[in-house]
Every structure is written in structure tokens, then in C-alpha cells.
């Protein structure tokens, strides 16, 4: 879902940078106040793990592939503020070091995959996990991919309409295609995220209580 250079209208690109930078600054302030020693190696290893996992695309349907986004996994394990930072760092390295996603579109990619991906999964996980943690993980993971894709489709549509077709993709194509493919990719995300969550809950249950931003984690 990495947007390349030149796909979106300059207005959308600027809006993406604005949302990304403001949200990242807010998350850094939040995490700086709460970070403690026990979470540091876990958060760094999780970030590295999500980076390599994102390189492994799995086949979906009709010659399409998807890969783990990791926004829900990071959000469930670290809380939304730290998760947004982790996914943003991954996206920045993918862009600057490996050329994955356009440099001008980096703000939009951070907005869609880090900010929207993490916040949407948090909004789903929090209420549902009170009844069933595993159902919360499953639904949060699927939602993170689907909502991020829906926002990307909206950006494509708005870019097309605002620029008179010079940028973006017409909504009658971008919305059904993006939502259709990512509804399926979201199932892969849900399965992988749930498997990692269940594995961690069995072998290292303390890692499920490392969220940054909750008052009880402050030492």
C-alpha cells in the first residue's frame, strides 16, 4: 500500500505531511514521558521483526499479494503512540534506504499505514478485547488494513476529482478495487497477527502488558 511519487495531487501530499508530522510529534511527546527500561529492547526487536515481515508478500487472489502491515500488532502490544512511531520508522527506512514508497508521498504513507492503521486498530481492539482479547486482535488487524485502504482509496478519488484526472484514480475504480483486495489482505493480517499474539501470550505473557502511555507502566 506504499504510495509512489506522482500518484496523488500536491494538496493531498501536503495534507499527508501535515497529519503525519503533527501526529508523530504528539506521539513522541507521549512516549518520551512514559518510556521505561523494560520496553526498550522489546519495542526495538518488534520494529525489526515487522520490518522483515513486511518484505514477505503472500498471494491473495487474482494475481495480487499482500504483506503484514503490523500496525495492529504494534498497537496491541505497545499502545497506539509507540506503535505509530514504530510503523513510521519502518516506513521512513523503507523509503529512504530501499526506495519503497515515494519520498514526496512519505507523509501520506505514514498517515495511512501508521496513523490510520494504528488508531483504527486501537479503536476496535480496546472495546472488543474487554469481552474477548482474541476476537479483539482478529478484528483490529483486519480493520487496520481495510480502513487504511479505504483512506488511501479516498485520497486517490479526491486527487482525481480535484485535479480533473491528472492525479489519482477515479472513484468508481479505486474504491472497489482497493476495498476488495484489502478486505482479503486483511484476512492474512488477522491470521498472522493472531498467531503472533497467541504465541506471545503462551511463551512471553509479560510482553502483552508493555503498552506505553498507560499510567501504570510509568515507574
Amino acid at each position: 500500500m506504499h504510495i509512489p511519487d506522482g500518484l496523488m495531487t500536491p494538496e493531498a501530499v501536503a495534507a499527508g505531511w501535515l497529519v503525519a508530522l503533527v501526529t508523530l510529534a504528539f506521539c513522541i511527546l507521549k512516549v518520551n514521558r512514559r518510556v521505561d527500561d523494560k520496553v526498550i529492547p522489546f519495542m526495538a526487536i518488534l520494529a525489526a521483526g515487522i520490518f522483515v515481515a513486511q518484505m514477505i508478500n503472500f498471494p491473495v487472489w487474482g494475481g495480487t499479494t499482500g504483506h503484514l502491515l503490523g500496525a495492529a500488532l504494534a498497537t496491541i502490544l505497545l499502545g497506539p503512540y509507540a506503535a505509530i512511531i514504530v510503523i513510521s520508522v519502518i516506513l521512513i527506512i523503507q523509503c529512504l534506504v530501499f526506495g519503497d514508497g515515494g519520498l514526496t508521498a512519505l507523509g501520506l504513507n505514514i498517515t495511512n499505514m501508521a496513523v490510520v492503521g494504528c488508531l483504527s486498530s486501537w479503536l476496535i481492539f480496546r472495546p472488543i478485547s474487554r469481552r474477548s482479547e482474541r476476537a479483539g486482535v482478529l478484528l483490529a488487524a483486519w480493520t487496520s488494513v481495510f480502513v487504511a485502504a479505504a483512506i488511501t482509496a479516498a485520497e486517490l478519488t479526491i486527487s482525481y476529482d480535484v485535479s480533473g484526472g491528472a492525479y489519482g484514480i477515479v472513484g468508481t475504480l479505486s474504491i472497489p478495487l482497493m476495498l476488495g483486495y484489502h478486505a482479503l489482505i486483511g484476512i492474512g493480517e488477522a491470521v498472522i497477527t493472531s498467531a503472533i499474539f497467541i504465541y506471545l501470550s503462551k511463551v512471553a505473557p509479560d510482553t502483552l502488558r508493555m503498552k506505553i502511555g498507560k499510567k501504570e507502566t510509568a515507574s
Binding site: D5, N57, G63, A149, L173, S174, Y181
Partner: peptide, 20 residues
């Protein structure tokens, strides 16, 4: 194979611009 966005671009006939 491409991912969901690349496939959407391909099916919409959008050519990817060169990176800046």
C-alpha cells in the same frame, strides 16, 4: 505479483512515475 495498491493502479491503467 504486485500488492493491492499496485494491482489497483495496474487495473486502472495508471503508469507509475519515476521516483524523485
Amino acid at each position: 505479483y504486485g500488492d493491492g495498491l499496485e494491482k489497483t493502479m495496474e487495473e486502472s491503467g495508471i503508469q507509475e512515475h519515476g521516483p524523485v
